[in-house]
């Protein structure tokens, strides 16, 4: 891909005391592309994605999103770019004191200028239809199963029609069948809205279904990258252990 990347991470470093989590990590994500970052638990995948959205400050390096360097942005500037980036949390992070409708309306009412009830309702129902859960609109998150909560969480991420969606372990805690359904849903969403996806995962099934390219995060850096099939062929002990 020759065009300018929509997300460009360059020489990123993040350490917690003596623990160097990210060391010289780099990655480019282009429009419409889906990249998975594969790594062991505790390898720094979630730290990476939190640095991208500005929830954590890296110690060194740059993260360019829409031509803005995230670590340099103030709160107001961060809020502006966050509207264009969706974030799916590992724990779903649905607001448990609100109904599904209120969960979806929450970002909408804050950032969308046309807040007429009918327009908001239409967008909420459209987002729910995309994840196949229109009937849950007036339910509370506690009444939903794990898979349904994940779908609602994806719907909430989609409602502002973001350019980039960051997925933090999207299939963790789900059974293999529901995990596959969610992975396919991620692909459908990406095609429909032409979004770019950065998927943090250690689930090979999910990566296989949802990612065009895989980056292996080992020892805090971009250790290897390519398609899943290409990575499987690499003769390196650290890479091979993921596929054994």
């Amino acid at each position: 891909m020759s065009e300018k990347p929509i997300l460009e991470i360059k020489n990123l470093y993040k350490w917690f005391g003596e623990n160097h989590v990210l060391t010289d990590f780099s990655l480019d994500l282009h429009k419409g592309e889906s990249i998975a970052v594969l790594g062991k638990s505790g390898s720094g995948k979630s730290v990476l994605i939190k640095c991208v959205i500005g929830l954590m400050q890296p110690d060194k390096g740059s993260i360019n999103v829409f031509d803005l360097n995230v670590p340099d942005l103030n709160d107001q500037e961060l809020d502006k770019i966050r509207v264009r980036i969706g974030f799916l949390f590992q724990s779903n992070a649905l607001y448990d004191s609100m109904t599904v409708r209120e969960n979806l309306e929450f970002p909408l009412r804050r950032h969308w200028l046309d807040t007429k009830k009918q327009s908001v309702d239409e967008l909420v129902m459209e987002a729910l239809e995309n994840v196949g859960l229109k009937e849950t609109v007036d339910m509370m998150p506690s009444e939903l199963s794990g898979g349904m909560r994940k779908r609602i969480s994806i719907a909430r991420t989609l409602i502002l029609k973001p350019d980039i969606i960051l997925y933090d372990e999207p299939t963790t805690g789900l059974d293999p069948i529901t995990g596959k359904e969610i992975s396919r849903l991620m692909v459908d969403v990406q095609k429909k809205y032409n979004t770019s996806s950065l998927i943090i995962s250690h689930d090979l099934n999910c990566v296989n279904i949802a990612a065009d390219k895989v980056v292996m995060l080992i020892e805090g850096r971009n250790y290897a990258e390519g398609t899943l099939e290409e990575l499987k062929k690499i003769d390196d002990k650290k890479v091979k252990q993921f596929f054994e």
Partner: peptide, 21 residues
């Protein structure tokens, strides 16, 4: 308790990444 549980279940982070203070 309410804000504590929102913090540990990442609901406060979710609010922040949706561009809400």
């Amino acid at each position: 308790a309410e804000l504590g549980s929102m913090r540990v279940t990442e609901q406060i982070d979710a609010m922040e990444v949706s561009g809400t203070n």
